[in-house]
């Protein structure tokens, strides 16, 4: 079926390399990888800048400031996620995949794809806060250090996506 040869990395090699990146994060910084935490840093900074009075009067931002002193953007995850953008761009540039496009199944419109992307993003944003980390921070990093929470997150994320796949099949197949 594959008309053109894939120029992606062999997935098992990719997995070993990703595992080594994760291992080096633990060895160097004593923590796993993450993504959603960087967004929280950016949100807290934005709220503190745009609405300082609101931030001071709201319990969540006050607590965050106490537990995370200093500038929220000066955080490990923010620097790591800037690296992700750079690394992703570099890989895409080398493989010739840099292109503005909306990727979707030929059976749906770009508009529908973008509406679902927005809804999915909102859900993932809420869920990652509730779950104390996303697929990277909670599931992958948690599985690597054999944390119970990591396995629970992994099972809940992938189990739900499998359970709901049938309802959204038109978007992908």
């Amino acid at each position: 079926m594959n008309s053109k040869k894939s120029n992606y990395l062999n997935p098992y090699l990719g997995g070993v390399l990703l595992g080594l990146v994760l291992l080096s994060a633990y060895y160097i910084s004593g923590r796993g990888l993450g993504a959603s935490g960087a967004i929280k840093s950016a949100i807290v900074t934005t709220v503190e800048t745009v609405a300082p009075a609101h931030a001071e009067n709201t319990e969540f931002y006050r607590d965050y400031k106490t537990t995370h002193p200093g500038n929220p953007l000066k955080s490990w995850l923010v620097f790591e996620m800037l690296g992700v953008l750079a690394g992703g761009f570099l890989s895409g540039a080398i493989a010739g995949r840099l292109k503005f496009k909306v990727e979707h199944s030929p059976r749906i419109t770009s508009k529908r794809r973008l509406a679902f992307a927005l809804m999915g993003g909102i859900l993932f944003g809420v869920g990652s806060q509730l779950g104390r980390g996303c697929t990277s921070g909670s599931a992958l990093s948690g599985m690597a250090n054999l944390s119970l929470g990591g396995f629970i997150s992994m099972a809940a994320i992938f189990g739900t996506a499998f359970a709901l796949a049938w309802f959204f099949r038109k978007n992908w197949i």
């Binding site: 992307a117 999915g120 993932f124 944003g125 869920g127 509730l130 739900t160 359970a163």
Partner: peptide, 19 residues
């Protein structure tokens, strides 16, 4: 952890990405 994971799973299948 469970509720957050379930919400993320729904976000994954609708949005096609994770963060």
């Amino acid at each position: 952890a469970i509720t957050g994971g379930v919400i993320m799973g729904a976000g994954f299948i609708m949005g096609g990405f994770c963060p």
